[in-house]
Write a protein that binds this DNA or RNA. Structure first.
Lengths: 175, 175
DNA sequence: ATATATATCTTAGTCACTAAGAGATTTAGC
DNA sequence: GCTAAATCTCTTAGTGACTAAGATATATAT
């Protein structure tokens, strides 16, 4: 029992620490956007392009949750800034692929250097085996958050009065 | 040599995995705001209030990077929604403390349940010792990101032409 | 007491967003 | 093959959250 209690406390601490670091991660992103002089959504799209490579405008809308109209604006601004290029798909001429212009995008990438250095410093204190554990956690965590996002999105399609009443754990003590 | 190479590859994989999961975390937050019917910044402030407890309007501006004028709007909306309360500091009557209204805020908290469940499922596969490693990482990672944010912010105070290395195209009117 | 500093709010204007629908192209049904 | 429906992006009009600058109120220093 004392063992489970210790674990429960550990899990709570962990949840708060994760929440804090992820909140700070959001702030880092906002700062990058500020320094780069582009909108938050614009940077978010750059990030998606970096991770997924050449994607269509529609896919950007899908992933970001913005309307296609908003994406038109995002891509207009990014294209004007020379960060991305529009390329019509020759096979299906309705589609527009967006791809990054590496030379320009690299300037944005430089703004992540302070973050990378900080993380390298942290990673440096872990053994290979420990890093593999962190990798496993990051990978599984991603899948979990992805699934949770889908679960939550489905609530949007459910009328409020028909939403299953989610049981919430007791609200945390106020410091 | 082969050993260092393996570690470099591991670090790269780790960086990408972290980036992916944190991007998905951002999307989860956006979805929560959508479902709750409040603006992103409003939710961000709720999160800060949850983590820091009763804070002043000025502190919210400081942490979020928004102007005090914007925070007035945020608090107006949150107060109207019954999620927070304004309380003048009796010791220094210029200050306004913002505090959450737990009963209402809990409704927002419920939207984090899918996420918490997903994470609990993930955490369930780790031993206490492994969880402590994750906690150490989250704590150190937070400090690292915080420091990196400060480092990056200092670039904002440096005139663009004097910034080391970076010569970014001016995309938006700079403050 | 006066001046300066601090904390929040107000105002005017800007920009990114949504909703709705137009335009262009592809796919399906006959 | 031809028409209708579906798909993908862009356009337009209107809305709301944001910034900058300054107003207001209170606190601190000289």
């Amino acid at each position: 029992m004392s063992r489970t209690k210790a674990r429960t406390a550990l899990l709570e601490e962990l949840e708060e620490a994760m929440r804090r670091s992820s909140a700070q991660g959001v702030l880092y992103g906002q700062t990058v956007a500020n320094v780069a002089g582009i909108a938050n959504s614009d940077l978010e799209c750059m990030d998606i392009l970096y991770l997924e490579g050449r994607v269509t405008a529609g896919r950007l809308a899908e992933v970001t949750g913005l309307t296609t109209g908003a994406i038109t604006g995002v891509v207009d601004r990014l294209e004007k800034a020379g960060l991305v290029r529009r390329e019509r798909d020759e096979k299906d001429r309705r589609k527009v692929f967006i791809s990054v212009v590496p030379e320009q995008a690299m300037k944005i990438g430089q703004l992540y250097v302070p973050m990378q250095q900080a993380m390298e410093k942290v990673f440096g204190t872990y053994s290979d085996q420990e890093l593999r554990l962190l990798l496993r956690f990051a990978t599984e965590g991603y899948k979990g958050v992805l699934a949770a996002t889908e679960a939550l999105k489905s609530l949007l399609d459910t009328p409020p009065e028909k939403r299953p009443d989610l049981k919430l754990k007791k609200l945390r003590r106020q410091p």
